[in-house]
Amino acid sequence: IAEEGSNSPADVFFAQDPGSLGAVDPQLEELPEDILERVDERYRDAESRWVGTSGRTRVLVYSTEAVDESALPDSVLDLTRPEWADRVGIAPTNASFQAFVTGMRLELGDDETRAWLEGLKKNGAKTYEKNTPIVEAVAAGEIDVGLVNHYYLALVKKEQPDAPIANHLFAAGDVGNLVSVAGAGLLSSTDQLSDAEAFVEFLLSDVGQRFYVDEAEEAEYPLVAAVASPQGLVPLDEIEGPDVELTSFGAELEATVELLRETGWLS
């Protein structure tokens, strides 16, 4: 869409993370207030160009056989300690991990984020292409813990009901508890603006939001207050993560990727 610019045939950009939405926000039309107001301001663009449609929190998936719950870290920063050497899995090429690193940069600064990334490297953290293989590796005993989005546990449990795995949230306020969103925006180049608005409006309708509770395999969080979280999940309003603006993620993505290169996680 960025390459197509004003020639894009698309009407709506529906993306998995705020970094992707922010990368094309100059091409997005301002959304109507009646659409925006269905979602808490934390989960929409500060300039009204996109709105979150579902939420996900970062978690530490862990092996219930290899790790006692009492030994789990209070902070994601603790994963660089010696006791976690060769036991951690991450997916540095994945957009969700990159969004998490962006959140860390915004909350803690580049120097502390760089030190953490270098510490993970020194501690022998293992890399995977994406989230599902991390959870599967934990289930198989290949690693003991991994940084993923919360819903991948349910996806793996569906295929392996007896897998000895569970999710762990870090202590309240920890940068490891980032809550991010998938979201949608209207392209300024659309010639079907009313239909495009109707599509985004449906995504945020009670019916559209209940999809994440009743049908979606991923069990993401609905963002409309009238629709309760999927059963078994910590309610979204009880998760205390970093105080960062998701609006900033698009502009920061390039710097995050560069930092991952400099610390040896990307080539």
Results as ranks from 00 to 15, higher is better:
Ile1Glu: 11
Ile1Asn: 09
Glu4His: 10
Ser6Val: 03
Ser6Arg: 12
Pro9Asp: 01
Gln16Asn: 13
Gly19Ala: 14
Gly19Phe: 03
Gly19Leu: 06
Ala23Trp: 08
Val24Gln: 08
Val24Ile: 15
Val24Lys: 06
Asp25Gln: 15
Leu28Pro: 05
Glu30Asp: 12
Pro32Trp: 11
Asp34Tyr: 14
Glu37His: 13
Arg42Val: 04
Tyr43Trp: 15
Arg49Asn: 09
Arg49Cys: 07
Gly52Ser: 08
Thr57Glu: 11
Arg58Phe: 11
Val59Lys: 09
Leu60Gln: 09
Ser63Lys: 02
Thr64Val: 11
Ala66Gln: 14
Ala66Val: 04
Ala66Leu: 15
Ser75Ile: 08
Val76Pro: 00
Thr80Gln: 11
Ile90Pro: 00
Ile90Ser: 01
Pro92Phe: 03
Thr93Pro: 00
Ala99Trp: 00
Val101Tyr: 01
Thr102Gln: 09
Gly103Leu: 08
Leu106Ile: 10
Arg114Cys: 12
Ala115Cys: 05
Trp116Cys: 05
Glu118Met: 12
Leu120His: 02
Lys122Asn: 12
Asn123Trp: 07
Gly124Cys: 09
Ala125Trp: 01
Tyr128Gly: 05
Pro133Ala: 11
Ile134Leu: 09
Val135Pro: 01
Val135Asn: 02
Val138Glu: 04
Gly141Gln: 12
Ile143Asn: 03
Ile143Ala: 07
Asp144Ala: 15
Asn149Leu: 14
Tyr151Ala: 05
Ala154Glu: 13
Lys157Asn: 06
Glu159Arg: 15
Pro161Tyr: 02
Pro164Leu: 09
Pro164Ala: 08
Ala166Asn: 07
Asn167His: 10
Asn167Cys: 13
His168Lys: 05
Phe170Thr: 05
Asn177His: 04
Gly183Pro: 03
Gly183Trp: 05
Gly185Ile: 01
Gly185Lys: 02
Thr190Ile: 03
Asp191Phe: 00
Leu193Asp: 04
Ser194Gln: 13
Asp195Phe: 07
Glu197Asp: 06
Val200Asn: 05
Glu201Asn: 14
Phe202Tyr: 15
Leu203Gly: 02
Leu203Cys: 14
Gly208Phe: 06
Arg210Asn: 14
Glu220Gln: 11
Glu220Ala: 13
Gly232Arg: 06
Gly232Thr: 05
Gly232Met: 10
Leu233Glu: 02
Leu233Met: 12
Leu236Arg: 10
Glu240Phe: 10
Glu240Ile: 12
Gly241Gln: 01
Pro242Arg: 06
Val244Thr: 06
Leu246Gln: 01
Ala251Phe: 01
Ala251Trp: 01
Glu252Gln: 13
Leu260Pro: 03
Leu260Ile: 10
Glu262Thr: 11
Thr263Gln: 08
Gly264Gln: 08
Ser267Lys: 13
Ser267Trp: 10
